[in-house]
Design a protein around this nucleic acid. Structure first.
Lengths: 157, 157
DNA sequence: TTAAGACCCTGTAGTTACTCTAGAGTCAAA
DNA sequence: TTTGACTCTAGAGTAACTACAGGGTCTTAA
């Protein structure tokens, strides 16, 4: 019967890299845990649940800022949860928007790809030639909320 | 008949922020232009075309690294363009993958949203309660190439 | 007793593709 | 001459980590 989990054990349990846990603490998402004599972090059930919450939200592609908002509600059980619903609706909207954008992108890329069917000299490559033309329409809106990522993912290994 | 465009004029022509042009130069994507007596950058047609190429690629969500590769072909007209085709195929693959991922995400978010139909006390909110549960399945693969973005976009204003 | 190995600590730098600011210089028109 | 629009460099900030470097701690085995 120990006084809590050490960071490695918590990491395994939450399927989350050790460095990321320390990062969440520093970012104010996870409360500072107790420390052992040797200055090791010791986590309790509270931390396990909270980390679980955070990782669940992250797996749903929410930003840390959004998660911070949700945690504020989680911490104030008597508060009205209308804002939670709104946040989620907005997030769903962003994801839906991004899907539409990526589909447009996909068809543009396929059109481009069709311009060069076989390997040839670069100067005759329809793709390279097309790319040099002036851009008229952009796939990406500038009226974006600055909230939904492009086509290139994080995620390692 | 001047000796070239200044950065502001080029920016307008390519619909690209001034700072971004300087950034591309520093990143080695745009060659260093001539300078005026007052040390202003002076751009020629070569630069206009190259910036157009870059912006076109960016609007197709390619990374600067990918664009660098394409530019190498653009600069070597006798080289075989097979690698260009391969790069594009791979990029199309990433976009397609990301669309699938986002669709899964979208349905998960909608399921979650359905858990709380009206506003109530946070402690009774089905969404918050669900998020606290332990995560079993992740929407995001870890076997990712580290190449296709999440659901949150760049894009300003 | 000591040494190996697994684990943990802090602090800092790197990643991507910009975006923004500070503080200063250039140039044409009023 | 002074205003205003434009430009310059250098450096910091963004998101969410990831990856060190250089050390300390703890358990186990020889």
């Amino acid at each position: 019967m120990s006084d809590g989990l050490r960071i490695g054990a918590l990491a395994k349990r939450a399927d989350c890299p050790v460095e990321t846990i320390r990062y969440y603490e520093q970012a104010g998402l996870l409360p500072k845990p107790a420390r052992s004599q040797g200055n090791y972090r010791l986590y309790s059930n509270v931390h396990i649940e909270r980390l679980s919450f955070i990782r669940h939200c992250r797996s749903l592609d929410m930003t840390l800022k959004e998660i911070r908002t949700l945690l504020r509600f989680s911490d104030a059980p008597e508060k009205n949860c209308g804002e939670v619903n709104a946040l989620l609706d907005e997030h769903i909207g962003h994801v839906a928007e991004r899907i539409v954008e990526l589909k447009i992108l996909e068809s543009q890329l396929k059109d481009l790809r069709a311009l060069c069917s076989k390997t040839r000299a670069a100067k005759d490559c329809g793709i390279l030639n097309k790319l040099t033309e002036h851009v008229v329409a952009h796939a990406q809106k500038k009226t974006n909320t600055g909230h939904v990522h492009g086509a290139h993912a994080r995620g390692g290994k």
